[in-house]
């Protein structure tokens, strides 16, 4: 199964719509609820990141019998120091993002904690591509 969702820059009102759709699909496939939670928490964090830091992007979802692979590609500014961004507590979030209850520097570390595989490709002024996989 393959799905794609578009993320629009600064569209905070719709942050979570892709994660919500993924949750419904996984429920229909009778995936264990703890696994579903790991997937959608990671995707939601990435969705918020793409809206907050990048200029929107696209989410590509592939589901087969063994795993779900989600790739979030944005055309944002890129992450200058990935190791620093993975460090809990480090954040470059705007006051607006903080008002929404995010921006504490917990997003990327929490994504890592929830998925079985995480790959971050990033290039300054080109964009960031995060690929995550959770095995069923």
């Amino acid at each position: 199964m393959h799905f794609e969702y578009t993320i629009i820059e600064n569209d905070f009102a719709n942050a979570g719509t892709a994660s919500s759709a993924i949750k419904k699909t996984l429920k229909q496939l009778n995936i264990d609820s703890a696994k579903i939670k790991r997937v959608v928490v990671a995707v939601y964090e990435a969705e918020v990141n793409a809206i907050a830091h990048a200029y929107g992007g696209t989410i590509y979802v592939d589901i087969d019998g063994e795993q779900i692979v989600v790739r979030i590609a944005d055309k944002g500014p890129g992450i200058p120091d990935v190791a620093l961004a993975m460090q809990e507590g480090y954040s470059t979030a705007s006051p607006k993002v903080r008002e929404m209850g995010f921006g504490a520097g917990m997003g990327l570390p929490n994504i890592k904690n929830n998925v079985d595989k995480l790959d971050i490709k990033t290039e300054i002024n080109v964009g960031t591509e995060i690929t995550m996989a959770v095995k069923f």
Partner: peptide, 9 residues
């Protein structure tokens, strides 16, 4: 709205 989305996830 993010409170509700967070609760959902």
């Amino acid at each position: 709205i993010q409170t509700i989305r967070t609760a959902e996830m």
